[in-house]
């Protein structure tokens, strides 16, 4: 149980960062932390005590962990990589235009 709670705390750290940080790069890092905690949730749900990696071997007769969430996590890591790359390139362009990383100074859109 305690491990799920710790994972939830990691998720909250990510949300806290997204809401309170003013630096664009720190916002991206907080988003990444949120994504990691979601992936960790998936892995934890599939975990069984004293179970092996999900590869069939001759002569090994121990229960395996569920392989599907691991495949899902691989996919979601790739998706997060794409989104993060896009966000970083947007931040680079924003820095060229505004010469700052402070989100409170980037506000030409109002209303």
């Amino acid at each position: 149980m305690i491990i799920y709670l710790l994972c939830f705390v990691l998720f909250l750290v990510g949300i806290y960062g997204v809401i309170t940080k003013r630096d664009l790069v720190k916002i991206i890092l907080s988003l990444a932390i949120m994504g990691y905690s979601a992936n960790l949730f998936l892995i934890l749900f599939a975990y069984k005590k004293s179970a092996l990696y999900p590869i069939l071997e001759k002569g090994v007769d121990v229960p395996m962990v569920d392989p599907l969430p691991q495949a899902l996590v691989l996919t979601s890591i790739v998706i997060e990589l794409g989104t993060t790359a896009l966000l970083v390139s947007l931040v680079a362009k924003l820095f060229q235009k505004y010469r700052t990383f402070d989100i409170t100074k980037i506000r030409r859109l109002l209303g």
Binding site: I27, L31, S76
Partner: peptide, 20 residues
């Protein structure tokens, strides 16, 4: 770029919630 950054941050947060 500013609008796209806001949209991308909100989109990532919602995608993480959906993944959970």
């Amino acid at each position: 770029y500013e609008a796209a950054f806001k949209y991308a941050v909100m989109g990532s947060v919602s995608s993480t919630l959906i993944l959970v």
